[in-house]
Amino acid sequence: MKTPAAVALTLLLATPAAAQGLSFRPYGMFAQQSFDAQKTFDAVFDSSSGSFFGGGLNITDDDRFYFDIGASHFKKTGQRAFVNSGQTFKTGIPLTATIIPLEFTGGYRFNKGKRMRPYAGGGVGSYRYEETSGFATDGEDVDTRHAGAIFEGGAEFRISQWVGASADVHYTYVPGILGNAGISKDEGETSLGGFQFRVRVLVGK
């Protein structure tokens, strides 16, 4: 039921908007993020990168300025650990981290009228972070939200009259969640953000 409803909403938003000079284009997104907290994520997940899936709404004005609202989701399970002299020791206790960014960005699209439209912009986001572990007692799991800053740049390609695709590099800086305790504190890593390589498919003119 959710999929037909999403398609209907997409068409509803996309069609009338184009007629008014503003273009409303829903999109779906996949992103691969290289976390700034490289040592921390590597210790827990054996990898300092992770995948985000999400979507949002891209609004353009006069086909030059854009405003974007998007949400995505990251979830991964690893092990609690500690790091000694650069070596990681796992405890075997599972840890699941979930990141849900809600991001608002705006910027400028170059090459009006061309099929490839480079763009650059920035914005702010609200980042919800959840961390659950085995054998946690009250107050030991984490569920918090902090603001972060965003910088992005990339290009959009027009695939057909109704479909576009974009690829960009999207950098987020998210202080306040990491660095106060846990491995991130030991490693002196304070930002939950990092560089994302994003691919989006946009629907609308």
Binding site: A37, T40, F41, V44, R80, A81, F82, F89, K90, T91, I93, L95, A97, Y129, E131, S133, F135, E140, D141, V142, T144, I177, L178, N180, A181, G182, I183, S184, D186
Partner: peptide, 12 residues
């Protein structure tokens, strides 16, 4: 003992 066996998480 408990803290030692449990180790650390990402943020806590």
């Amino acid at each position: 003992a408990r803290a030692t066996l449990r180790g650390l998480g990402i943020a806590r």
